[in-house]
Amino acid sequence: MAKWDIETIGEWDWRQFPLGAVIPESGNSRDYVTGGWRSERPVRDKETCTQCLLCWISCPDSAIYVEDEQLPDESFNLAHCKGCGICANVCPVEAITMVPEGCDLPEVK
């Protein structure tokens, strides 16, 4: 369906809301940013990474991108990643490190 336009929802009156509190668009939480919850962000060392995808299957926030069965260079959706660190924890080759938000990022190879 066409995207449900909720830009001005804060100003809607009762007539403008869909019937019965239905949300007429599926999966639109993709537009909601939970990245601000994060105090640490994951950083992946592409050299070390074996593309096993364990991080992807274990992410609670659907925040890891996969393209053509591979993690792309920019592999984390930082709009959604809450920085839980599960990806780093499950990585069998320690290719992912969690680095504090707001600090200078280490050089990414």
Binding site: T34, P60, D61, E69, C84
Partner: peptide, 25 residues
């Protein structure tokens, strides 16, 4: 896992479960 990546991930991000929640996994 590679095969599974071809399937649709039916839960979108941007939900407000805690960091590290087992339920969404």
């Amino acid at each position: 896992l590679k095969e599974l990546t071809h399937r649709e991930d039916r839960l979108a991000g941007g939900h407000r479960l805690c960091a590290g929640c087992g339920a969404s996994i």
